[in-house]
Design a binder for these strands. Sequence first.
DNA 1: ACAAAAGTGTTTGGAGTACACCCATGG
DNA 2: CCATGGGTGTACTCCAAACACTTTTGT
Lengths: 228, 228
Amino acid sequence: MDIYNEKDKFYVAVDCIIFGFDNQKLKLLVFDRRIDPFKDSLSLIGSFVKIGESVSDAAIRILKDFTGLENVYMKELKTYGSVDRDPGYRCISVAQYALIRIDNAIKKIVEEKGARWYEIDNIPNLILDHNQMSIDALKRIEEVARYKPIGFELLPKKFTIPKLQTLYEAIYRRKFDTRNFRKKILSFDVIIKLDEKDRTTSKKGAYLYKFDYKRYRELQESGYNFEI
Amino acid sequence: MDIYNEKDKFYVAVDCIIFGFDNQKLKLLVFDRRIDPFKDSLSLIGSFVKIGESVSDAAIRILKDFTGLENVYMKELKTYGSVDRDPGYRCISVAQYALIRIDNAIKKIVEEKGARWYEIDNIPNLILDHNQMSIDALKRIEEVARYKPIGFELLPKKFTIPKLQTLYEAIYRRKFDTRNFRKKILSFDVIIKLDEKDRTTSKKGAYLYKFDYKRYRELQESGYNFEI
DNA sequence: ACAAAAGTGTTTGGAGTACACCCATGG
DNA sequence: CCATGGGTGTACTCCAAACACTTTTGT
């Protein structure tokens, strides 16, 4: 074992599966490739890891290069390592999924970069194994959302409970009962009611809340379970 | 982006975190390295992925080479990709965790290979980031065991309910109530009672059961939840 | 007969689910 | 004044958790 053989060296790529929420639907960020290989096809964003860079740093760099975003919720999904996954050269990809807030700033940035949001049940053909990555990432989000409050990563800093509910309904593709949903969310005791209302979606207006990261971490340390 | 640079090529390793259960404690399989680098240190098993081999095939090959085992429950844990994780050369490792049944055959094999089982809360110093891998894998097992019946992978084909309970107590490091545990396990309806008894641990003898993989898959397809 | 593990039921509290109406406001 | 989305309470069901004694049999 442990025989060093120069032939057995690989390109290592990072591909990012980026999800956003536009207050209605859960969406995937897809890029129109302007350069070869696969020019004019659709793909996720990705790039090779540089030899002097950690895989996670590469992921952060790639996300920033393509979207301008930093401090984004991003986690490793899994490694895609089949021999023939990329016909051009032998390359393994460490896929990462990211959750971002869609606001006007990001909207503009991504459009400039030739990107588009697609609804998750209407994803177009992507290059290589990028469709599989998207499917796997979506499944992972469903799993993770079950016991970690990742939903807040997709919402603006200030959000209303009805929006939060719409988000979870988008993730799980089913409706929740308003009263039960509120009860559950509030019972976690990790969101703080603000004195402002959001009147953009109703005349009455809905109270804005913010996520209490500090309290969340406290509860998490003590083994609390956020199962939705 | 996508600039091919021969310099940016990596060795890709697979390291396997192998857990076993000896009817009492959950244990980790650790190897005494007989070759350089790190000769005479302790480590997990691992090797480089070959250029013509998928990452998952490499994992299967490595496990077989070191333990002789095939058809083992093995899943990807995560990728370890820091720049300085291996001082010798730039190398990323795709760690995999595996669950195996400890029987006499495997006992003999692993001893011949210079391997030893260590109790999970008494793991010695391992090379590189292998201690971190073990910690991460253990945490993952706890998570997965919560909603998938992976426990059966660690037990003999025929097992008793008290043994199954001991296993879960080893994974979660806490005691369960006998009556509630039985009730829960039997309610899943995925184990089949046999006509034999195991009398090795008591005079009365405990009925042996086997896992019903077919039924398990059926239930899984229909979205059943095996939360312990 | 006794030690040691296997096996068995019931009660209780809390959480999930189902369900329908009033509120506030802008137009 | 009415249309629209926001917000609230209760009853029922079911599952998890707590809890103690009997059975079997080798020694």
